[in-house]
Structures are given as C-alpha cells and as structure tokens.
Amino acid sequence: MEEGKVISQSLQESAAAYSIIHEKFGSAISALDANETMPFFEVIDTSQWTEIALFMRDHPKLKFNYMACLTGVDYPAEEKLGIICNFESLALFNHKLAVKVKCARDGGSIPSVACVWHTANWHEREAYDMFGMLFTGHPELKRILCPDDWVGYPLRKDYKVQDQYHGIKVPY
C-alpha cells in the first residue's frame, strides 16, 4: 500500500501542475487524463504550443526543465499525425506530464519547441524523418536517420518500402 500511496502522491502533484497550465491557457488544452502511468493532456489550439511549452518550462511552480522524450505517432483513423512529449522537473518537483499535439496527416505542421528544450531539436527531426509532419520554426528540419534522398516516411502505418535505392534492390 505504501508503494501505491507514493505513486498517487506524484499523480496529485501532476494534477496540480496541470491546473496551473489550465488556469493560464483554458480551452487551448484538453482535460487531464489522470492515469497513474503517465498523466497527459492534449494541446487543442496547436498554434499556442510553443507558448505553453515556455510557460511549462519557466513558471516557478512548474519548471519542467527536462524533456525526457518526444515520440511521433500516426493516427490513420483520425487522418492525423501527432507527437507525444514527456516532461519532468529534474531535482525540483515530482510532477510529470505528457503532452500530445496533433496535426493533419497530409502537409500538417506543429510549432517547434526546439528553442525551448534543445533536446527537441533532434527528436523533432526524427519525428519528421519517420512520420513526415513539419515543425514550423525548427532551425534545421531535415532527415536525421534515413538518407536525405529516401522516399516516404517509414513509421507511417501505410508505408510501403521503395523498390530500388541507388540501384540496389530494397525488398527481400
């Protein structure tokens, strides 16, 4: 029981952190999904994403100084692409939050937060490389793992590998 109590303590702190963000941005963000594993909310007005990020990093009671991860996701049913960012506040608070940001599947774009957390620079490039969503305001948005002349975005659900790459057969 002691273990369970500790976890819900951290969840309470995460919910408190969320309410500070919600107070400031209101309907620009969704309600909190208060699960034990990783409480998250979604940014509904994506144009405010960079501002929300700066607020989360700099507010004295939030201080999300650590972006643990930025993952790309494909939602073919919703015709959307998205990212999920995991934030923590190292050495300051126990709260942790995940933030989801979605955009249109074809030619959609998400504001870049590379200027807020430098970690996001390469992570956003990876998400772009694998899923093809654009990050507006990114300092150097180009492929990071695949070669520059690679065709398609490999982690999309409907991805089909190209037949030839520089004259070498790709499929088995």
Partner: peptide, 19 residues
Amino acid sequence: CGGPYWEHGYHVLKGVDRI
C-alpha cells in the same frame, strides 16, 4: 540475408551479396 530485418526492416540491405 537480412536476418531478423528481412521483412520489416525497411532500411536494411537483405544480404551483402547483393552489392
């Protein structure tokens, strides 16, 4: 021959004897 990446490894050459 590509090993465990033979089907879903989009970025793996399926056997170095191709080159």
